[in-house]
Simulated scan of single mutants.
Amino acid sequence: MNQNTVKISLDLVHIDVARNATDDFNLFHDKKQWQQITGNPFGGPIVLGFQLECFIEDYIKQYRQQNDELNTLEQHQLKFSNYSFNFVGVARPKDNLTAIIKKSRIYSEDKTVLSNRVVIKNEQGIVLMGFKSNSNVPLFANEQGLFPTFNTKEVFDRTTVDESDYFYKRKYTTNSNAKNFLTGSSVEQSNYFDEVNDKILFPETYCTSLISCALLERGKANGLDFKRNPMVYTSHKISVHSENVAKLRSDQQLHILVGPPINKVTSGKEQGSVLLTHYCIGLNQDKSVLFQGEIELAPLSYILHK
């Protein structure tokens, strides 16, 4: 077979559990306040993008095990997990979702990559599309000097770092939040946490999901009107340092930096439409890198225009 197909079912309670576990207060996911968003076309709360990516993370993990690809990861030292997804539509509670995972491909030029194309659809069409891959170098946001250096003890939560305009958000790991995020993403939590047998494995996408909280906090600090001028994700491009994430334990301090928005003006028929890209990085308490990436957003008005 060239692809695997699996069904996903997420209810409203899954959304609540996932957003509570990650402190995501985006009104698009709120079962009561979604109606307060001006021009909201979605007709109700929608699933978190990181929920879908968590399901993909777990499914690809099982796929690697079942297809004897773990040796490939070790042989080529593919220590980085990369998530590159475009959000084409939205998923709603009780949608009949189908994830299509294409057969693994490995290729090597200046870097070695083991990759799977992924598409998630509902009855209306494509919700998400892109790839999940493993590589021997991070594929995204790896430009030299991209992120500022700083002393975590001298920076206050929800402030900017020096002159860089990078917004700093401090978080703490808890097993319970990670378990709830897994459950909210329709993933079996015992595959990651079993304290009786000393099994503790924080999902990569739990760490990256905290980007949403940091972005929302940044928007709030800068006066963004979440009701009249909300932003929506258009793409995620994130590289995770898998070995560093595997060392995480409960009650560890995390440091998340979200850069200032970079304007991107599209060309062609949509010339003049503005997309905003934020570079972001997540660090463990010892300042080892957990993830790095670029998050692209657009105003809801842009999406409605499209």
Score class of each variant (00 low, 15 high):
4 N>Y: 10
12 L>H: 02
13 V>R: 06
18 A>W: 03
20 N>K: 10
21 A>L: 13
22 T>Q: 05
23 D>S: 13
40 N>E: 05
55 F>G: 13
57 E>T: 07
61 K>E: 00
61 K>Q: 08
65 Q>F: 05
66 Q>L: 11
69 E>Y: 04
70 L>K: 05
72 T>E: 06
73 L>Y: 02
75 Q>G: 04
82 N>M: 01
83 Y>E: 03
89 G>V: 02
90 V>M: 08
94 K>Q: 12
95 D>G: 15
97 L>K: 11
101 I>S: 09
102 K>Q: 15
112 T>R: 10
113 V>G: 02
114 L>I: 06
118 V>Y: 00
126 I>Y: 10
127 V>H: 12
130 G>C: 04
131 F>P: 05
137 V>S: 02
143 E>I: 14
143 E>R: 01
145 G>L: 06
145 G>D: 03
147 F>Y: 07
148 P>R: 14
151 N>K: 13
162 D>S: 11
166 Y>Q: 14
168 Y>E: 04
171 K>P: 00
179 K>T: 12
187 V>T: 09
188 E>T: 12
189 Q>D: 12
199 K>A: 03
201 L>C: 05
203 P>V: 03
204 E>N: 15
207 C>F: 08
210 L>H: 12
212 S>G: 09
219 G>V: 07
221 A>G: 00
234 T>K: 07
238 I>G: 12
241 H>V: 00
245 V>F: 03
246 A>R: 12
254 L>Q: 08
259 G>S: 04
268 G>Q: 06
279 Y>P: 04
296 E>R: 15
299 P>H: 06
303 I>E: 10
